Amino acid sequence: MKALTLGPEGTYSHRATQAVADEIDFVESVTGIVEGVASGEYERGVIPIENSIEGSVTESLDALADRNVAVVREIVTPIQHALLAQAGEFDIVASHPQALAQCREYLNEEYPSAKTEAVASTARGVERAREDASVAAIGHPATAGDDLQVLARDIQDSTSNATRFVVLAPETERVDAGGKSSVIVYPNTNHPGLLLEMLEPFADRDINLSRVESRPSGERLGDYMFHFDFAAGLYEERAQEAIEELRDIASNGWVRVLGSYDTEHVL
C-alpha cells in the first residue's frame, strides 16, 4: 500500500504513517496530501488533526471540508521533542510552527535570546540545523543522526503532549464500522439557537461528542462550518438518526460524512 504524508523523512507524520504503509511518499502541505488521496493517486494519506497542547490543525480541517475523502483510522502518538544542534551555541531555533508552540515555555526560559524560524516540518528544521551551525532544531531525538547533538530531551511544555493523526482513503472506501465517527456540517444559515439545534440530535440519543469545532466557510464573514467527532459507529441506528436530523437542519447547505474508524496508539 502506498501512502502520502508530510515530509521530508523523519517527521512525526512519517512515524505515524509507518504504522499504515511500507511505501511512503512526502509532500510539504496537508492540502497536497488530501488532494493526492481524493484524486486516487494514493491509497492512503496521513495528516495531523489535533495536538493536546496547541489544539486542532486548521489546515487539516479546511482541507477535509474542501475535498471528498474518507477517514478510516485514527492514530495517536506521543510527541517527544528534543533540541538538536551541531553545538551548544546557536542563534535560531527552526521547526514546524506547532512544535515551536509546544516548546514555547522551554525556549523562553532556556534560550530567551534565540530567534524562532517556522519551517514546513520538524524534519525540515533538522535539515536546517545540519546545514547551518547557527541553527538548532526541534524534532524527535532519533532524527539527530551522526551530525547533530541532542542538547535536551522532552522539552515540550506538557509531558502528556500527543498528536492525533487521521488516515485518509478514497471516499469509496468509507466504512460504517468503528467506535468513532466524524462529520462536517455546513448549515448555510445563521440564527439564534443554531448550534444548540445541531447538538441536540446527539444529546437526545446519548451520543458523546468528543470534538466540536467551527471553521470559517470562506463564503462570507461570519459564516461557519462545523466539525463533529462522536463516540458511535455509523452502523448504529442512533448515529444514522442523528445525521438525518443534521441533514434536515442543514437543508440549505450540506453534511459530509467522513466515516467511522477505530483508534490505534503508536509510540
Score class of each variant (00 low, 15 high):
residue 132 D to W: 11
residue 62 D to V: 08
residue 60 S to R: 09
residue 42 Y to R: 07
residue 102 Q to H: 06
residue 68 N to R: 15
residue 48 P to S: 07
residue 143 T to R: 09
residue 124 R to M: 10
residue 24 I to W: 04
residue 106 Y to K: 11
residue 60 S to K: 10
residue 104 R to M: 02
residue 19 A to E: 10
residue 124 R to K: 13
residue 70 A to M: 03
residue 101 A to I: 07
residue 66 D to K: 15
residue 61 L to E: 07
residue 53 I to M: 12
residue 57 V to D: 01
residue 77 T to G: 07
residue 13 S to C: 12
residue 65 A to Q: 01
residue 43 E to G: 01
residue 41 E to I: 00
residue 82 A to R: 03
residue 128 R to M: 11
residue 96 H to M: 11
residue 120 A to W: 12
residue 77 T to R: 13
residue 85 A to I: 12
residue 72 V to C: 10
residue 87 A to T: 15
residue 92 I to N: 05
residue 56 S to W: 13
residue 28 E to I: 06
residue 42 Y to N: 02
residue 97 P to D: 00
residue 69 V to H: 09
residue 78 P to G: 01
residue 84 L to V: 05
residue 75 I to M: 02
residue 132 D to V: 04
residue 16 A to T: 03
residue 29 S to Q: 05
residue 142 A to R: 15
residue 143 T to E: 13
residue 60 S to N: 11
residue 135 V to Y: 09
residue 111 Y to F: 14
residue 90 F to E: 07
residue 12 Y to L: 10
residue 76 V to W: 14
residue 146 D to Q: 14
residue 109 E to I: 09
residue 34 V to T: 00
residue 23 E to T: 09
residue 84 L to D: 05
residue 100 L to W: 10
residue 12 Y to M: 08
residue 123 A to T: 01
residue 138 I to T: 06
residue 19 A to F: 11
residue 71 V to I: 15
residue 20 V to G: 08
residue 57 V to L: 12
residue 32 G to F: 07
residue 103 C to M: 06
residue 80 Q to M: 14
residue 44 R to C: 03
residue 68 N to P: 15
residue 44 R to P: 05
residue 133 A to K: 15
residue 70 A to L: 08
residue 43 E to T: 00
residue 24 I to D: 02
residue 48 P to I: 03
residue 90 F to M: 09
residue 24 I to M: 08
residue 28 E to W: 08
residue 127 E to I: 06
residue 126 V to C: 04
residue 127 E to G: 03
residue 69 V to R: 00
residue 144 A to E: 09
residue 73 R to I: 01
residue 131 E to G: 05
residue 85 A to Q: 14
residue 93 V to H: 06
residue 88 G to M: 11
residue 71 V to R: 06
residue 70 A to K: 04
residue 131 E to P: 09
residue 107 L to M: 12
residue 28 E to C: 03
residue 120 A to T: 09
residue 100 L to P: 05
residue 102 Q to Y: 05
residue 145 G to H: 13
residue 89 E to C: 10
residue 52 S to D: 04
residue 45 G to D: 09
residue 41 E to T: 03
residue 106 Y to M: 11
residue 133 A to H: 15
residue 109 E to Y: 12
residue 119 V to H: 04
residue 72 V to D: 02
residue 18 Q to A: 04
residue 33 I to G: 02
residue 56 S to P: 14
residue 15 R to I: 00
residue 139 G to N: 13
residue 38 A to S: 10
residue 14 H to M: 09
residue 52 S to L: 11
residue 91 D to T: 10
residue 78 P to D: 03
residue 45 G to S: 11
residue 49 I to T: 03
residue 79 I to C: 05
residue 146 D to N: 13
